[in-house]
Design a protein around this nucleic acid. Structure first.
Lengths: 148, 148
DNA sequence: CTTATTGCAAAGGTTTTGCATCGCT
DNA sequence: AGCGATGCAAAACCTTTGCAATAAG
């Protein structure tokens, strides 16, 4: 099973970080393992989140290493990027095609179930090309923040 | 008619840049007019697009002025931001709620008709909060690039 | 005339790069 | 042993800020 098949058919809790690195043809280093573990743990993490968290367990890590690895893993398709309006980029492990609910109050990101692409495409009269991917971000106030 | 009502009910070609500035309580300066004209002309423009284009007609403009104005206009709701995956932010005049088709080959952005939010919300089993806005980006290869 | 806006230059932040060293496989 | 990955420091970007001069209403 190749990388794409492996990550798209699994769930976050079942993901094995070392398997991903092997399938991506990347050497297994403690820095990489920790970077992916942090993203897996948090669900959605910024560069700062990752750097600060990994540094706790591996103080000698350099921010350059974080950037290089995030870039590599993104290029290989292991990570996806989420760009909320006027906020920093977040990274997540590409598990399956899902969407995001972004709370404009606490800035948390919640995964929401995949939306049927067929249905979305039917909403549009005309699309000027061939679709390869949909990115749907839903903004609002999450239930936690609404309570306050 | 207030700013929000004015920009949401008009079309790009009908937009009067000076009216927008008046309704936004911003002084009408040549720099501001040009900035908005460039965005209107291009449809979707990056900071660099705007700076380079305005400079042709107004060479003394400073990049700081561009940043300050984009920021102001965004805060007032005149502009919206589009953040394509691994690309710079683009700005557009907020006319009505529409979506974007982003060509992964030529990086052009095409406006597509608004998708019915009701329909989209029905796609999701559960959403962890109250929705205020939807942002839908469609990635693919545009017809122009497909021909090549 | 008053106050917002501009342009400049400096500061602050973020991301990338080159290179010598280190460590997976 | 060989080649890719790391860490460091510098460089390259990108964005914001403070302030004096200028221009809009």
């Amino acid at each position: 099973m190749n990388l794409k098949e492996y990550i798209m058919q699994t769930t976050l809790s079942n993901i094995n970080v070392k398997d991903i690195l092997k399938k991506a043809n990347l050497k297994i280093t403690p820095q990489r393992i920790l970077i992916l573990e942090v993203i897996k743990e948090k669900g959605h993490a910024t560069i700062d989140d990752i750097y600060n968290q990994v540094k706790k367990q591996y103080p000698s890590i350099s921010i350059a290493t974080v950037y290089k690895n995030i870039h590599n893993l993104y290029e290989k398709g292991v990570l996806r990027e989420i760009n909320p309006q006027k906020d920093k980029a977040f990274y997540e492990i590409t598990i399956y095609n899902h969407s995001h609910f972004i709370c404009t109050s606490c800035h948390n990101i919640y995964d929401i179930e995949p939306c049927d692409n067929q249905i979305i495409q039917q909403c549009f009269k005309e699309i000027p090309g061939k679709i390869s991917e949909l990115e749907l971000n839903v903004y609002g106030i999450c239930e936690n923040c609404a309570k306050k």
